[in-house]
Design a protein around this nucleic acid. Structure first.
Length: 102
DNA sequence: AGCGTGACTAGAA
DNA sequence: TTTCTAGCCACGC
């Protein structure tokens, strides 16, 4: 059976090494979707239960988390990133040292 | 079949 | 440096 776009996106996200992060545009390009950065978030929203996809390693192009501060999802992502060793400040990540595939 | 929406991006002020 | 605007494209209703 053919893998769907969502599956492809999840596969790309799985390729992100721990301790590093990637932007939606980066993932979209690697998934072969080009400029569909917005679809990435939507696909991650479709993630099934019991998944092992490090969706929390996907951030905006400027290194900021895509959720509003104070949201449970935001807090969860921040916690997971810090657990990976990524420094999160004011909802932003020091992508100067954590940018994936320069 | 058409319209609104969004876990986005790049550029300008 | 931060904030605002316009462009973008696929999906769901």
């Amino acid at each position: 059976m053919e893998p769907t776009k969502d599956q492809k996106i999840w596969q790309v996200v799985l390729l992100i090494p721990a301790g590093k992060v990637a932007s939606y545009g980066q993932v979209a390009d690697m998934a072969g979707l080009g400029r569909q950065a917005r679809y990435i978030g939507r696909a991650l929203g479709k993630l099934p239960p019991g998944h092992s996809v490090p969706w929390y390693r996907v951030l905006r192009s400027n290194g900021q988390i895509a959720f509003p501060e104070g949201s449970p999802t935001f807090l969860k992502q921040k916690e997971l990133l810090e657990q990976e060793g990524v420094e999160v400040i004011s909802g932003k990540v020091q992508m100067r040292q954590f940018r994936w595939q320069p």
